[in-house]
Nucleic acid binder design. Structure first.
Length: 929
RNA sequence: GGGCGUUUAGCUCAGUUGGUUAGAGCGCUUCGUUUACAUCGAAGAAGUCGGGGGUUCGAAUCCCUCAACGCCCACCA
C-alpha cells in the first residue's frame, strides 16, 4: 500500500528541501495528495533535477528534518511492520529536568547505530523511546526556579496541587523539547510505543509491583534511620548521596567526670541522644565496664543512661577505642541498636535532631537550636566542665544530597522500605540472591537468563555492591512522583489500588523515582497485563548505559525484572564512559563548559556529531569532546558526499542492486577494491555486532577515504576513459558506493539516506537489507599486487616531491624489475608520467631512483638532479634496510624461535628477509653504477 | 582503608586472542587550482608504548613492583 506512495512523497520532500525549501507537516500532506494524483511523473522530474544539481558541499540542515519525517512515516520504526527475530532496546529515558546534553547524544548514537544495524540485518527491531519524570531532581529543579522568581517557600506558598501543577507544566515542556531533540539526533525509535515513567500505564505497573512486593512481605513500613535532607525536606536513598571530603573538628571528651571512658566525636551535639558506649569485644581496657550503665546529665531533657556494649565494628585503634552510640542519628549506631534489640539487651533510641534541622525537645536545654549552635553551646559546656580533652582538625567524608546539596542528617522516621535480604515466598531466594544470580550463574542456573556486561570489569563492581546492599528506602516526602499506593481509613490499610467507598485517604508520600524506572524494560511493554509485546520483546536484547548509573539503574532493573517476571531485563549491557570537555573536565553548568548537541547539529550535521562521539572511544572509558573532532567528522561526511556526487553525476545510468556475480572486474584495481569491500563488510559486521562502533567507524573511514577515494576513484578515471573498461568500471563504482552507503548507515544515517535517494528510488536505506559479502572469497593476490603498485606509485611520488618536480610536470620513468608491468596505465595516471618504460637493467643518465617492492623506479630528472641529496637519500634507505635485515637474521638464526613459533610467522619473516635482501642488492647495484 | 581505571607521536586517542619495521585524526613542514571534494590532493618530520623487574623463541599486549593522574566504594566515630 502506502509504502510506494510514502517513498515518492519522501523523494519530493527531500529533493525539494535540497533546494532550500522546508515543508511543514501540513504542506507535506498536501504534497502527498498531489503525488498520489500526479504520481510518478512528478517524482521523476524532481529526481533528475536533483541529480544534476547535487551541491558541492553537503548541507545537512536542508535534508535532515525531511529525511527523519520520511523515516518516521515509512512505518519501519515500528517493528510490527518488520519480520524476523525480535531485537529490542529500551531507550534509557532521559530525565525531564531539562534538555538533552552531549551524553544523550552519545547514548542515542550508540543505541540507534545498534538498532539500525540489527534492523538492516533483518531483525524485528524495536527501539522504544521514553522519558523519565525524575521525581526528586525535577521537583528540586522547579523549586529552585521558583525560588529564583521570589517564591521563598514554594511548598508552603503554593501548596501541593499548585506546585505539582507547576512542575507538570515544566516537565511537559521539557519532555516536548527532549522528544524533538531525539529526532534531531536521528534516533530510529518506535514513536507509537512512546512511554513516560509517569503516565497511566506506568502508574499501573508501579502500583502492581508495590502491591506484590507488599504481599510478599518485602515492602514494609518501618521506623528506621533515614538519610534526611533538611533543605529538600525528604528522605533519599543511599545511592542519591554524594560523599565529599571536608575538614571537621574532632572533639575528645568525657560525658562526665564520673564516666571513666573517653570518647570522640565530630558531632558532639548528637551526644545528647547517646544511649550506649560501644567498645570492641577484645579490648581489654574496657572489659571490666561491659554491661555497666552510666547515668549522666549533659543537659538533655532526661539524664542519659549509657550502657557499655560490645560491637565488632568498633576499631580499638581509632581514637580512644570507645564509641558513643547515638542510635537515632547514625546508620551504624542504629544497626547496633537493632543488634542489641535482637540480643535481648536493648538500648534506647532518643532523637535529638528534628526534620527541620533543629534540636528536638529531647535535647532539653538545647531544644530549638539549629545543630551548629547546639554544637557550639555543647562544646562550650564541655570546656567549662573541664571534660574536653582534645580538639583537633581532621578530614572526614560527609554525605551530601546530590540534588539539594545539603549535608544529609541521619534521622529516625517511619518510612516504606524494600527488604532485599528476605526470602521471597515460594521462591526460596531473596531479591539480593536474584540480583546476584542474574550476573553470575543466570537465574536458576539458566545460562539464557544471564546478563553479560561489557566491559566485563563492571560485573565485579555490580556484584560487590549487591553484597553490601541495605534495605531500600522507597518513600519520599516530595510531591512530584507516583503516590505511594496505600490507602488508609482509621486502622484499615489497603495496598495497590484505591478501594471503593468513602473516607479513604492515600499515603502522602511519593515513591523513589527509581522504583518506576527500575521496571522500565517491562512496564513499557504492557506489564502487568500479559501483553504480546512482553512476550515478543522481553527480555530485551541489549541495553547501553553510562557507568555512573550502574548502581542506580542497572541494579534496580535487574531487581524488578527478576522479581516480577522471573526474567532478566536484558541479555547484554554495554557500559559506556562519560564525555568530558577538552581539558578532561566534566561538563557542568557551574563550569559553564556545556555544549548543546543541537547547536553542533545545526552547525555541522547530526552525522558528524554521531561520528565524533563514537570514534576513537573505547568501551567503558571516558572520552573528550571538542569541536575540532566534529569538524574532522564533518569533513568525512563531506568526503563521502563528494565521492557519491562524482559517481552519481559521471555515471550516466547508475544501476543499483546488482549482484556481485554480475560485475566484470577487468583490472587489478577492480579486483582489489572488491576484495577490500568484502573485507570491510566482514570487519564492520563483526564490530557492529559487539557494539565496537569506534572500530567499525575507523574501518569505514579508512576504506572510504584511502581505498576508495584516493586509490580506486583515481584509478577509475583512466579506466573510464577506455571504452573497453568503461562500463565495467561504472558498475563497480556504483556497486561499491551502494554498499559503502549501507555499511555507513547505522552510524551516519542522514547523509547516507540522502545519497541513497539519488541512487535508488523505491526503497529507503533505513529498510535496506545489509548486504553480507561473507560468502565471497577475498582476492589476496589482487591485494598483494595492489600493494606493490601502491608502493611503486608512492616511490615515484616521493622522488617527485624530494626533487621538487612540479606536479604538472610530466616525467619520464623507467621501471626495472618488479611485477607491475601490466598496470602501466594506472601508474602513468596516478604518478603523472608522460613516458613509462620497463627495462631489464638500470638506465644510464641522470635519474633519481627508489627501490620499491621487488623492483626499482628511475625518474629522469634531466639536469635537476642533486647528486649529493640523492646519494644521501639512498644511503639512508640502505641503512634502514640493513638494520631491518639484521634484525630478521638474528630472529631467524634463533632455533628456539624457528622451532617454537608458528610456521606462518616464520615463513612470513623468511619471505620478508628475502625481499629485503633483494632490495639491498638493488641499492648496492645502483650506487655502483 | 579497600577497589578500579588511565599512562602509546606536539595534542586527542585506537591498538581485537602476545607474532613482520606500533597506527589514526588534529596540528606541524614542503609542494600543488587537472571539472567529486581547498571541508581537497601529494610528500614528509615526529614515539626507548610511564619507570624497573620477570615469564616467553618473541611483550605496548601476560605477571610482579614503583610512580603520577583520575574515578568509585567504605560503618575513621
Amino acid at each position: 500500500m502506502g509504502k510506494g506512495l510514502k517513498l515518492q512523497v519522501f523523494r519530493v520532500c527531500v529533493n525539494g528541501c535540497g533546494k532550500g525549501k522546508t515543508y511543514s507537516w501540513a504542506d507535506w500532506c498536501c504534497l502527498a495528495i498531489f503525488i498520489a494524483k500526479e504520481g510518478f511523473f512528478a517524482y521523476t522530474t524532481f529526481q533528475s533535477m536533483a541529480k544534476q544539481d547535487i551541491p558541492k558541499a553537503y548541507e545537512a540542515k536542508n535534508h535532515e528534518t525531511a529525511i527523519y519525517d520520511a523515516w518516521a512515516t515509512s512505518g519501519f520504526f515500528n517493528p510490527d511492520n518488520l519480520s524476523g527475530e525480535p531485537f529490542s532496546i529500551m531507550m534509557p529515558p532521559p530525565n525531564v529536568t531539562g534538555v538533552l546534553h552531549l551524553g544523550h547524544a552519545l547514548e542515542n548514537t550508540i543505541m540507534d547505530s545498534m538498532i539500525r544495524y540489527q534492523r538492516m540485518r533483518g531483525r524485528k527491531a524495536l527501539l522504544l523511546p521514553g522519558t523519565d519524570h525524575a521525581a526528586l531532581p525535577t521537583q528540586a529543579k522547579v523549586e529552585k526556579m521558583l525560588m529564583e522568581e521570589g517564591i521563598v517557600h514554594p511548598r508552603k506558598e503554593l501548596g501541593r496541587d499548585q506546585l505539582v501543577e507547576k512542575i507538570r507544566v515544566f516537565a511537559e515542556q521539557s519532555r516536548a523539547t527532549i522528544l524533538s531533540q531525539i529526532k534531531k539526533l536521528g534516533t530510529s525509535c518506535d514513536w507509537s510505543r512512546l512511554a513516560y515513567t509517569f503516565d497511566e500505564p506506568r502508574n499501573r505497573a508501579v502500583n502492581e509491583l508495590f502491591r506484590q512486593m507488599y504481599e510478599d512481605g518485602l515492602v514494609y513500613r518501618g521506623y528506621r534511620v533515614v538519610n534526611w535532607s533538611v533543605k529538600g525536606q525528604s528522605t533519599s536513598s543511599d545511592d542519591e548521596i554524594e560523599h565529599i571530603e571536608r575538614t571537621a573538628k574532632l572533639y575528645t571528651f568525657r560525658y562526665s567526670k564520673d564516666v571513666p571512658i573517653t570518647i570522640a566525636s565530630t558531632r558532639p551535639e548528637t551526644k545528647l541522644g547517646d544511649t550506649a558506649i560501644a567498645v570492641h569485644p577484645g579490648d581489654a581496657r574496657y572489659a571490666s565496664y561491659i554491661g555497666q550503665t552510666f547515668v549522666v546529665d549533659v543537659g538533655a531533657l532526661q539524664p542519659l543512661r549509657l550502657k557499655v556494649i560490645v560491637d565488632e565494628h568498633v576499631d580499638p585503634t581509632f581514637g580512644t577505642g570507645a564509641l558513643g552510640v547515638t542510635p537515632a542519628h547514625s546508620q551504624i549506631d542504629f544497626s547496633m541498636y537493632e543488634t542489641q534489640k535482637a540480643k535481648g539487651d536493648p538500648i534506647d533510641l532518643i532523637p535529638v535532631i528534628g526534620p527541620d534541622g533543629n534540636m528536638t525537645s529531647q535535647a532539653g536545654a538545647y531544644a530549638g537550636l539549629p545543630v551548629e549552635e547546639a554544637r557550639e553551646k555543647f562544646v562550650a559546656w564541655l570546656k567549662q566542665e573541664g571534660l574536653l580533652e582534645k580538639e583537633e582538625e581532621i578530614t572526614q567524608s560527609v554525605g551530601v544530597s546530590d540534588r539539594y546539596g545539603d549535608v544529609i542528617e541521619a534521622i529516625p522516621m517511619t518510612q516504606w522500605w524494600l527488604n532485599v535480604q528476605k526470602e521471597i515466598p515460594g521462591r526460596g531466594k531473596s531479591l539480593r540472591d536474584l540480583m546476584r544470580e542474574a550476573l553470575t550463574t543466570g537465574l536458576e542456573g539458566d545460562e539464557k537468563q544471564k546478563i553479560s556486561v561489557s566491559p566485563e570489569r563492571f560485573t565485579k563492581l555490580y556484584l560487590d555492591r549487591v553484597e553490601h546492599l541495605r534495605d531500600w528506602c522507597l518513600s519520599r516526602q516530595i510531591w512530584w512522583g507516583h503516590r505511594i499506593p496505600v490507602w488508609y481509613k482509621g486502622e484499615e490499610m489497603v495496598v495497590g489500588t484505591q478501594p471503593s467507598g468513602e473516607g479513604w485517604t492515600q499515603d502522602e508520600d511519593t515513591l523513589d523515582t527509581w522504583f518506576s524506572s527500575g521496571s522500565w524494560t517491562f512496564s513499557t511493554l504492557g506489564w502487568p497485563e500479559k501483553a504480546d509485546d512482553l512476550k515478543t520483546y522481553h527480555p530485551t536484547s541489549w541495553m547501553q548505559m553510562g557507568y555512573e548509573i550502574l548502581y542506580l539503574w542497572l541494579m534496580r532493573m535487574v531487581l524488578m525484572s527478576t522479581y516480577a517476571l522471573e526474567e532478566i531485563p536484558f541479555k547484554d549491557v554495554y557500559i559506556h564512559g562519560m564525555l568530558r570537555d577538552k581539558d578532561g573536565r566534566k561538563f557542568s553548568k557551574s563550569l559553564g563548559n556545556g555544549i548543546d548537541p543541537i547547536d553542533i547539529i545545526e552547525k555541522y550535521s547530526a552525522d558528524a556529531l554521531r561520528f565524533a562521539v563514537v570514534s576513537g572511544v573505547s568501551p567503558g572509558n571516558d572520552s573528550r569532546f571538542y569541536e575540532e573532532k566534529v569538524e574532522a567528522a564533518q569533513r568525512l561526511v563531506n568526503k563521502l558526499w563528494n565521492i557519491s556526487r562524482y559517481i552519481l553525476t559521471s555515471v550516466e545510468e547508475p544501476v543499483h542492486g546488482r549482484a556481485f556475480k554480475e560485475l566484470k572486474p577487468q583490472t587489478l584495481a577492480d579486483r582489489w577494491i572488491l576484495s577490500r569491500l568484502v573485507r570491510l563488510e566482514e570487519e564492520v559486521s563483526s564490530h557492529m555486532l559487539v557494539a565496537e562502533f569506534s572500530q567499525a567507524s575507523e574501518k569505514l573511514r579508512e576504506f572510504t577515504w584511502s581505498d576508495f577515494a584516493d586509490w580506486y576513484l583515481e584509478a577509475s578515471k583512466a579506466q573510464r576513459a577506455e571504452e573497453s573498461t568503461k562500463t565495467s568500471t561504472d558498475d563497480i563504482l556504483v556497486y561499491v558506493l551502494e554498499h559503502l552507503l549501507t555499511y555507513w548507515h547505522p552510524i551516519m544515517p542522514f547523509v547516507t539516506e540522502q545519497i541513497w535517494s539519488y541512487l535508488c528510488d523505491d526503497e529507503l536505506l533505513l529498510a535496506h537489507t545489509w548486504p553480507s559479502l561473507r560468502m565471497i572469497d577475498l582476492d589476496l593476490k589482487a591485494e598483494e599486487e595492489m600493494g606493490w603498485l601502491q608502493e611503486t606509485i608512492g616511490g615515484i611520488r616521493t622522488i617527485r616531491s624530494q626533487y621538487a618536480v612540479a606536479p604538472k610536470q610530466k616525467i619520464r620513468v623507467v621501471i626495472v624489475g618488479g611485477k607491475v608491468k601490466e598496470h602501466a596505465s594506472v601508474i602513468e595516471g596516478l604518478a603523472s608520467i608522460s613516458e613509462l618504460s620497463f627495462e631489464e637493467t638500470a638506465p644510464v643518465g641522470e635519474y633519481a631512483s627508489a627501490v620499491v617492492g621487488e623492483g626499482q623506479v628511475f625518474v629522469s630528472l634531466e639536469g635537476l638532479v642533486d647528486k649529493e641529496a640523492e646519494a644521501a637519500n639512498a644511503k639512508h634507505e640502505q641503512q634502514q634496510t640493513q638494520i631491518y635485515i639484521k634484525s630478521l637474521e638474528v630472529k631467524l638464526a634463533n632455533t628456539e624461535f624457528t622451532s617454537k613459533a608458528p610456521e606462518q610467522v616464520v615463513a612470513t619473516m623468511r619471505q620478508n628477509l628475502e625481499e629485503a635482501r633483494k632490495k639491498l642488492e638493488l641499492y648496492v647495484h645502483h650506487s655502483e653504477s
